[in-house]
Amino acid sequence: MKHNKKRIAKMVDELVTYMFSIGATDISINISDEVDSYRIRLESNYLNKYRKNLDKLQKYLNYDKQEEMEEYYWELAGDSDVDTELTLIGMMTDEAEIDYNDDRIKITLRRNKKG
């Protein structure tokens, strides 16, 4: 697969853009290049008034992987500051975990190296 690392960077870009949109002011990101996969871990605060949005975030990031969508549309991830592409991130992800409480959120995404 071409541009694999660029795709990881785009996914992170999209997540950061989303976190800013829900009022984040303190975001920590860790990206690890593991044997069979890449793992993105994001921890952040957020404004509680956006808590109802997080159900949708959970739904979007847990969509089944769709390689045919990724191959065509991956360049759009993280590209707009007026809209989000979270469904696309879900389609680029093999496994997603989202934990949150009143003011903190923790997201872990795993993306296999082999498509």
Binding site: E71, Y72, Y73, W74, E75, L76, D79, S80, D83, E85
Partner: peptide, 14 residues
Amino acid sequence: LPPLSTYLLRVHQG
């Protein structure tokens, strides 16, 4: 088509 169509998405941002 594949490389061009993917690249040109950025021009109009979808």
